[in-house]
Design a binder for these strands. Structure first.
Lengths: 195, 195
DNA sequence: CCTACCGATCGGTAGG
DNA sequence: CCTACCGATCGGTAGG
C-alpha cells in the first residue's frame, strides 16, 4: 500500500519537474533526461512512470485542468461575479509567472495540428469561449452590457486579449499592466462599474 | 558580379525555407538539415551562408522587418487612417497563415530572456506600442476617441488582443473572426464609425 | 558549395 | 527504479 503512495508522490514530483522544464524551454525543447534530473532520477526511471514523452505532457495538462477546476469553482453563475473572478484569476497568474509561461508556450507550439497538445487546446478554447459567451449574454439580459455589444464578439475578443497580453507581459513585464488592461477592456463594455 | 547575385538569391532561398520550417516546428524544433533540404543543399552548405543557427534566425527576423516596413508605409500619420491600415494588415495576415504562424511561435519561444530572438521581440513590442499610443492620442485630440478612454491602456490592450487572437485563430480557425474582433474592439472605443 | 567527420544529445528498450 | 545500450539526429568543423 505504501508502495502505491510512494509511486503517486514520485509521479507528482516528475510532473512538477516537467512543468519547470517546459516553462524554460518548451515541450519540444525539454529532454526527458533534463526533467528526470530535476526529479532526482534517471531518464529511464522517468520512463517507468511515463512510458513516452507524450504521456508526460498529457499528465502536465491534466494537472493544469485539475488546478483550473479547483480555482474556477464551477458554482459561480455567469455574470458580473464571474468577471470579477476572472480578474482575480489574472491577478493570481501575474503572481505565478511560471504558470503563464508554460501555458503561453504550449499554446503557441500546439497550433500545429500534429502537436500532441493540439486537441487539448481546441477543447480549452472552446470551453473558455462558451463560458465567456454565457457571461456576456447574462450581462446583456440584465442590462449591464452596453447597447449593441454582441456577446459572442465580446467573448472572443476578451479571451484573445487575455492570452495576447500574457505573452506581451512575459516579454516586457514593466511595460504591461495585465490586470489593468483587462479592467480597461471590460469597463468599455459595461454600463456598471466593475467593482 | 553574377557570383554575388547568385549568392544573394541563394541566401533568400534559404531564408524562405527557414520560414517554412519555423512555421511548422518552431525555431528550436527546426534542424539545419531540414532547412537545407528544403533549399536543395546540404546543411554544411547552409552553414557556408549562415555560420550558425542563430545567424539564420536573425536573417529571418530581418526579412520580416523589411516586409513590415514596406507594408506599413511609414508615411501614414497616426489616427483613423492608420487604424484602417492596421485592419487591412490583419486581413492580409489572415490570407497568409504562414506569416502568422511563424510570428506567434517565435514570440512565445522568445519569452525566455536567453532566447536569441528575445531582444528582437522587446523592440518589436515597444515599436508597436509607441505607434498605437500615438494613434489613440491623435484620436483623443480630434474627439474621435470616447471620453475617458486612456490612449496608453487602449494601445496595450489592442496589441495584446491582436496577438492573442492570432493564436486562437490558428488553433480554431472556424471559431474566430480575427478581423471582425478587431473591428469590434475599436468600435467600442471610437465615437465615429470605422469606415 | 560538398564529403566526411566530430562529440553531444535525443527518445526509447532490454534486462534485471 | 538503475545500468547499459540502441539508432537517429543535432550543430558545427576540416579540408577541399
Amino acid at each position: 500500500m505504501t508502495g502505491y503512495l510512494k509511486g503517486r508522490l514520485r509521479r507528482e514530483d516528475i510532473i512538477t519537474a516537467a512543468i519547470e522544464a517546459y516553462r524554460e524551454t518548451g515541450y519540444h525543447g525539454s529532454s526527458l533526461r533534463e526533467v528526470a534530473k530535476r526529479a532526482g532520477i534517471t531518464h529511464a526511471g522517468l520512463l517507468y512512470y511515463f512510458p513516452t514523452k507524450e504521456a508526460l505532457l498529457a499528465a502536465v495538462l491534466e494537472r493544469r485542468d485539475a488546478e483550473d477546476a479547483e480555482r474556477e469553482k464551477l458554482d459561480i453563475p455567469p455574470g458580473m461575479e464571474l468577471l470579477r473572478h476572472l480578474i482575480a484569476l489574472a491577478e493570481y497568474n501575474v503572481a505565478h509567472r511560471g504558470i503563464v509561461e508554460v501555458y503561453a508556450r504550449l499554446a503557441a507550439e500546439a497550433v500545429a495540428p500534429d502537436h500532441p497538445a493540439h486537441e487539448y487546446f481546441i477543447r480549452h478554447y472552446q470551453i473558455a469561449r462558451d463560458s465567456a459567451v454565457a457571461t456576456f449574454t447574462a450581462l446583456a439580459e440584465s442590462g449591464e452590457l452596453r447597447d449593441g455589444v454582441d456577446p459572442h464578439a465580446a467573448a472572443v475578443a476578451f479571451i484573445g486579449m487575455e492570452d495576447g497580453l500574457q505573452v506581451q507581459w512575459l516579454t516586457t513585464p514593466d511595460e504591461v499592466d495585465l490586470v489593468g488592461s483587462m479592467r480597461f477592456f471590460l469597463r468599455n463594455l459595461l454600463t456598471v462599474p466593475l467593482d
